[in-house]
Write a protein that binds this DNA or RNA. Structure first.
Lengths: 333, 333
DNA sequence: CTCCTTTGGCGAAACGTTTCGAACCACTTT
DNA sequence: AAAGTGGTTCGAAACGTTTCGCCAAAGGAG
């Protein structure tokens, strides 16, 4: 049988109220403190968090909803968030929405039903209707890597990220640059595409041809076929920018099948493991993934303690361009 | 204000007991059913799982402890387990022990304190003392990918896995085969090394030279340096078996720096993404990762419902050898 | 020495469920 | 008509905490 306050009361003779006070950092006289500590050790007592949660209306758990679990980007985020929240006493319930909006809504209801105190989400797409379940129950939500109107969000400066890639390539002499990006259904992709267009116009004075930036399916396959399509154009680009990790992966695979002399310059996105595995060392736009996670965790913790501004907050972080081997960005003569 | 049974009672005139029965699948007369459903819809009622947990002594959450989160192997496992457990109504609290035994023990206490109903763990090493916290509170534990004496475990047939790699290489004519494996501190590594030794003896009649199987640090770096060390030996191996994913990754990186003609044959372990990215297509021992996860989930669910045999269960699954491009395993003339 | 304030402790009432035994009802059986 | 039966419903007591209002003792100011 697991010990309760009542057992401690039996041993110490103190009241439940005093014992509770002890476990919640209130003032308890020295001798009584020791009495409780001794009894607790003897009984191997541990606070029952479920009972505590019922009374205090906090479950001390938060939910994390991911569009997919099996991606380095996401696991890094989860790992950091979990670490920070556990420090603060919160358990992290994880849910994989498998890139499915309906499943995402299910999961949201599931978590709200589990009485989580807050939620971090990497949403599947721009549709915010699934947030209603949380809003109805006043559960704070922080979105990561997507800007959700009306919700706290932590994002990177997508336009600047792509612009830094474009700048490198234009400086190296490229003018015909292609973009591998997904459809405009997510905020992130919209921003990256817009950032590409704007940066091209800024740096070259011209808008890129539409055929150089048609949307791809966001997958390894999409990256492969997209790169091949670009290179089959009558006027193929001399350089390609990939707007996300899996597209970079796909493009790299497609590149491996080409002869050295045919390879376009390629600037990818976001994976650190990749950089170590691939020769020549790739040029990559890298996101501050850990910061993204810690900012999200801190923001959520602030909301959980009832703090923060009344209006939704958006935190924007900067990316870094990791310049790889020069063959990955130079224009061939 | 969030609705409770009392609100439903006010509207329907039924007793709390009947309402509870409705929500727990008991028999309730048709008209009363409808009454409750109508009231619940009106109130936007959702069961309070914390209160339910207090009374029924089940939190309907389980903990998952991982030695690290950022590995495809582990995330695949988590994703599947989470999916299956959520189907059964359980929330999955995830904890990353960061390969640190002390942190693993902390996390175990944390989860037990959170009143989880069960725990799945991929342990840091063979030390089982951290399990005490769970055992004291009668929380069932299932270990994945490690055999923990006295605990339900789901593992692969490590010896057979390595033996299949050795068989392929010996059949292709190799006799000097090296092994990249970690130190014998974990069950998994011990089994794989023993499996290697036994298979070599079976197939070649000789034990491999000790210098061909000295332990490496289990990391990408360890794989790199280990492969280089093997090739610098006065009698270098003509083929190398890697006993795990990160070692394979490291060895592959080191391989990339060698000229084609110097490359030894290489059989790696366990990653599917890898296979798509690397040319020539590598030969890999692949684990049934998804099955590992579903078996673990089913076993835990069985324990959660009080079922299963009295003694700890060990489930052993088989691996598959995915043969890649022939240059990855053939002996050069 | 009295009055007031501060401190620590106490009993009892929540929090929102589940569960147990008893009560009830409409039948069927004697 | 009384007794038995099977299926529903009910009231009340848990589950293990936190919290509210009150009280006693101790300390300080006048």
């Amino acid at each position: 049988m697991v010990a309760t306050y009542k057992d401690i009361r039996r041993i110490t003779g103190l009241s439940l109220a005093t014992i509770s006070k002890y476990y919640n950092g209130g003032n308890v006289l020295g001798p009584n403190r020791e009495l409780i500590e001794k009894a607790a050790a003897e009984l191997d007592y541990q606070v029952n968090n479920v009972a505590r949660g019922l009374r205090s209306r906090r479950s001390m758990t938060v939910g994390v909803i991911l569009d997919e679990l099996a991606s380095t980007f996401n696991t890094t985020i989860v790992s950091r968030i979990e670490e920070r929240l556990r420090e603060a006493g919160y358990g992290t319930i994880i849910c994989d929405s498998r890139r499915d909006a309906e499943s995402q809504a299910d999961v949201m209801r599931f978590l709200v039903g589990k009485m989580v105190d807050g939620i971090v989400v990497i949403p599947v797409d721009d549709d915010t209707s699934f947030l209603a379940a949380a809003r109805d129950r006043d559960v704070p939500v922080v979105a990561v890597d997507r800007l959700m109107p009306g919700t706290d969000s932590v994002v990177i400066d997508n336009r600047a990220a792509i612009a830094s890639a474009v700048q490198l390539l234009v400086t190296a002499g490229h003018t015909a640059i292609g973009l591998l990006a997904g459809p405009d259904t997510t905020y992130t992709m919209r921003e990256r595409r817009a950032g590409f267009r704007d940066a091209m116009q800024d740096r070259t004075g011209l808008l890129p041809r539409a055929e150089l930036m048609t949307p791809e399916h966001v997958s390894v396959e999409g990256g492969c076929t997209g790169l091949r399509r670009l290179l089959r154009l009558s006027a193929p680009p001399t350089a390609v920018v990939c707007a996300n990790y899996v597209l970079t992966l796909g493009a790299t695979i497609a590149l491996n099948e080409l002869g050295q002399e045919l390879r376009p310059a390629l600037v990818g996105f976001d994976n650190l493991e990749l950089a170590r595995l691939i020769r020549p060392r790739p040029t990559l736009v890298t996101q501050p993934i850990e910061s993204l996670a810690t900012e999200a965790a801190e923001l959520l913790l602030q909301r959980l303690s009832g703090g923060g501004p009344d209006d939704p907050v958006t935190i924007t972080l900067d990316t870094t361009l990791m310049v790889g081997h020069e063959s990955t960005y130079q224009l061939r003569p």
